[in-house]
């Protein structure tokens, strides 16, 4: 356990991809913050219309799904292909919960006539969360592919880079939301 790895778990290519994705989000976050600095009152006023309860459920859902993914990796390290697939399915279910709650939130705002052009706050709120929303879908697709392969017995206790690759991507999706949640919903 003491000898450290030279490369992070999973395929190095996914880490380069993760870095690229994270930098896009970093730019987005900074753009949000600096634009907010110019329209503090507008942002503070319309932030009140967001429902933090939904955001709480979603944050808990994503963290839980990330945890399930950690367990999936642990399972395959112990050689349990079925266990791995089961944990992954649980993680995907949590992702689905996120999508449902997020859709309800969108539904609420859209039914009040909110669009990307309503004001700068909503423009950022919708853009940021929607871009993240698409990442959740993509992450779920990746996890599903990994789960299918795991169930078919494609991974073993020694060879399971694919599981770690999918896991790393999913944690990235979680990581982004961890910043997005306080920034857009709470910080004022």
């Amino acid at each position: 356990m003491t000898d450290k790895l030279k490369q992070p778990p999973g395929d190095l290519a996914i880490w380069i991809f993760i870095c690229a994705e994270l930098s896009v989000f970093a730019v987005f976050f900074a753009a949000y913050a600096f634009t907010r600095a110019k329209h503090v009152e507008l942002f503070n006023q319309y932030q009140q219309t967001l429902n933090t309860n939904y955001a709480l459920i979603n944050t808990l859902a994503l963290i839980t799904s990330s945890y399930f993914v950690v367990r999936a990796v642990a399972a395959i390290r112990e050689g349990s292909q079925r266990g791995c697939a089961r944990w992954l399915l649980a993680a995907i279910a949590m992702g689905a919960l996120f999508l449902v709650v997020k859709s309800m939130e969108y539904q609420h705002h859209f039914s009040h006539g909110v669009t990307l052009s309503t004001n700068t706050f909503y423009m950022f709120y919708i853009s940021l969360t929607f871009f993240h929303f698409m990442h959740v879908i993509m992450g779920m697709v990746i996890l599903a592919a990994v789960a299918l392969k795991a169930r078919r017995g494609a991974y073993t206790a020694d060879r399971h880079t694919g599981v770690e690759t999918g896991a790393s991507y999913w944690h990235m999706v979680d990581l982004v939301w961890i910043i997005l949640f306080p920034l857009v919903y709470v910080m004022r």
Partner: peptide, 21 residues
């Protein structure tokens, strides 16, 4: 975020620049 990186993504068992990504 740091905890997710360290424990979930497993970076605490990595050395070199990737450790801190």
């Amino acid at each position: 975020g740091h905890l997710i990186g360290d424990f979930f993504m497993g970076l605490r068992r990595v050395r070199g620049p990737w450790r801190w990504v």
